[in-house]
Design a protein around this nucleic acid. Structure first.
Length: 567
RNA sequence: UGUCCAAUGGUGUAAUGGCAGCACAACUGACUCUGGAUCAGUUAGUCUAGGUUCGAAUCCUGGUUGGACAACCA
């Protein structure tokens, strides 16, 4: 489904920019001619469409240069991470069509990172601080003001060494002490102001259990992990630009300690940043997605309205669409499914149509083309009878001039069947239309010469006697606002919590369940993730909740509807 | 009164000193047994003021606007 040529389209500028660097390094003979990347998720949530971009780049760059891309879980915070996320992340990457080389974990390097930290303390480049987080934060200064040095900054090395061991064997409670790198409290880059590199966490780790109590911070683990693995090109988002000098410094120190000081420039990860994905009507903050899930505002991480990979999958997107062009996903999925989805008839807002001059009890098998865009797709049969279900919207008693559907005196074509003339309707005591009447012209059956008459409108239908009941879930965008991230920030400034703000921003029509719809019998054997076009309505996929007794379809995306626009 | 990053039609982008192009969206029309698809066409852009240059979206300077950075998160 995906190949490197396709991915090139996704982020041409960034990719060329990154590619240029890779080629330059290759031409200089750096890294012994190796190209190695990695995709480094934290297993604390499900992958979303923003990660898909990173996956494309990480795997794509490696593949294009004959290199390898490994999967590394940056699992340095046991309070948020677990194996459920590890498994889901792996499944999603594979669904996207990628296969990593090795599977690594930052926790694999805890010993090496510990040894490195010990060495830094011994060399006077790190110290134990026992101030509160508030005190440390206050001393950090601001981006425009230099910070103040900690009173513990110059404590004896032996003391720090001893306390660091105590941090790790459980003698020191959480929040009581941290290990800080001794760099420069006045540096304009905040990350250089004696960053915390180790803290105490008493929650057991999902892989290392209770072996460790002192855990490295991300900034002390990420760059070194890349280095330990031999990563040559470390791709990440723009927000990490300011972290890069710190990572470089740690690698410098590590190289010196390892006696590679004469070879500082080669065989070390080179970080290149790319722009984060930002899509209209989509919120990609993991923290807030987690709130949506935990508070039950959506049905789970794979709710078809979620911007997660598994959400898109359940919604009916294909890996191709998710990767082809993020910004144009709706257009991409229509183009894709237009070419591939089997056309079927489904009535999602039913009203009965009676063909009054069609013999009672008679049944005909009509031929239905599976896909007019693909001659090789063949056709299937659909049952036609005197009584049919049609859409309520396809009948109007008093219709405007440009209305081409059922209205008394008007002719319409029943798709794949006959041309009929509307004769009227029956209403209940509330004035609600309960039955529509029409007469058919027996000479106009599809395929017969008489069918070639010009008729303005064609409507879809299913047989009243020969159809299946189905639940149809009409999904729409989750948010009312175009920039949910900005709106969320605005509402939070007004003092609202994330949850309150998200409730306010949610599109009340993001899910409309139609419990009783009718679909043609052809769909009896449809399997989850099969794609169909419900003619004149949209593209639908079979939900994982669907059973042969209770069919459930999810709307992937509606067909374009120029009529609705002119209304 | 910091450091870093960025600014091209409504949206996403291409052009790396040499004709501002593409896609999506929108709008016309044609065609159509899906008011879909398809086809043809239209509208619409280099943040700003200088400078360098034969020539600037591109290089330089100032300004404006937006973003990132002050978690014992990643």
């Amino acid at each position: 489904m995906t190949n490197p040529e396709e991915e090139k389209v996704t982020e041409k500028k960034s990719l060329n920019f990154i590619e240029a660097k890779v080629e330059e390094d290759l031409s200089k003979g750096k890294n012994g001619g190796r190209v190695q990347t990695r995709f480094p998720p934290e297993p604390n949530g499900y992958l979303h469409i923003g990660h898909a971009k990173a996956i494309c780049l990480d795997f794509g760059i490696a593949a294009q240069h004959g290199g390898v891309c490994n999967l590394r879980f940056d699992d340095t915070n046991p309070t948020k991470e677990n194996m459920e996320y590890v498994d889901a992340i792996k499944e999603d990457i594979q669904w996207l069509g990628y296969q990593w080389g090795n599977e690594y974990y930052a926790s694999d390097y805890f010993q090496q990172l510990w040894d490195f930290a010990i060495e830094l303390i011994k060399r006077g480049k790190a110290y134990i601080d026992e101030q509160s987080s508030e005190e440390i934060a206050a001393q950090k200064g601001t981006p425009t003001q230099p910070g103040v040095e900690s009173p513990y900054r110059n404590r004896p090395i032996e003391e720090s060494l001893d306390l660091f061991h105590k941090m790790n064997n459980g003698e020191i409670g959480e929040g009581k002490m941290v290990l800080r790198a001794k760099i420069d409290m006045a540096n304009p880059n905040m990350h250089f102001r004696d960053p915390i590199i180790y803290r105490v966490v008493d929650t057991p780790h999902h892989r290392t259990g209770s072996k460790w109590h002192a855990y490295p911070m991300y900034d002390f683990a990420h760059g070194q992990s890349d280095y330990f693995e031999g990563v040559t090109h470390s791709l990440c988002t723009l927000e990490f630009v300011v972290h890069r000098p710190l990572y470089d410094l740690f690698i410098d120190w590590l190289k010196e300690i390892r006696g590679e000081g004469d070879n500082m420039d080669d065989n070390r990860p080179r970080q290149t940043e790319f722009n984060k994905l930002n899509l209209n009507y989509i919120l990609l903050s993991k923290r807030n997605l987690l709130i949506l899930v935990n508070e039950g505002l959506v049905s789970g991480w794979d709710d078809p309205r979620m911007p997660t990979i598994c959400g898109f999958r359940r919604r009916g997107y294909t890996p191709y669409d998710a990767l082809n062009d993020f910004a144009l996903m709706e257009s991409a999925i229509r183009e894709d499914l237009n070419a591939t989805a089997t056309r079927v008839a489904a009535v999602v807002n039913p009203v009965k149509l009676v063909i009054t001059n069609y013999p009672e009890g008679q049944l005909e098998e009509m031929e239905a083309i599976n896909n007019p865009e693909d001659e090789t797709a063949g056709s299937h049969k659909i049952a036609f009878s005197r009584e049919l279900w049609i859409e309520k919207e396809d009948f109007m008693e008093d219709a405007p001039k440009k209305y081409f559907r059922m209205t008394p005196g008007n002719e319409v074509r029943l798709k794949n069947a006959y041309i009929v003339k509307c004769t009227g309707c029956k209403k209940d005591e509330n004035g609600e239309v309960v039955e529509v009447y029409a007469e058919y012209d027996p000479d106009t059956k599809s395929g017969m010469p008489g069918a070639n008459r010009k008729v303005k409108g064609t409507i879809h239908w299913v047989s009243y006697e020969r159809c299946l009941e189905a639940e149809v879930r009409m999904y729409d965008r989750l948010w009312k606002v175009e920039n949910p991230r900005d709106e969320l920030a605005r509402l939070q400034n007004e003092g609202k919590t994330s949850l309150e703000a998200m409730k306010e921003m949610m599109n009340p029509n993001s899910l409309e369940i139609r419990p009783v719809c009718y679909v043609e019998e052809f769909l009896a054997d449809a399997k989850p993730l099969d794609h169909f076009q419900f003619q004149r309505i949209g593209y639908f996929t079979v939900d994982k909740d669907s059973t042969s007794n209770h069919l459930v379809f999810n709307r992937t995306v509606a067909l374009k509807d120029t009529w609705a626009k002119t209304m």
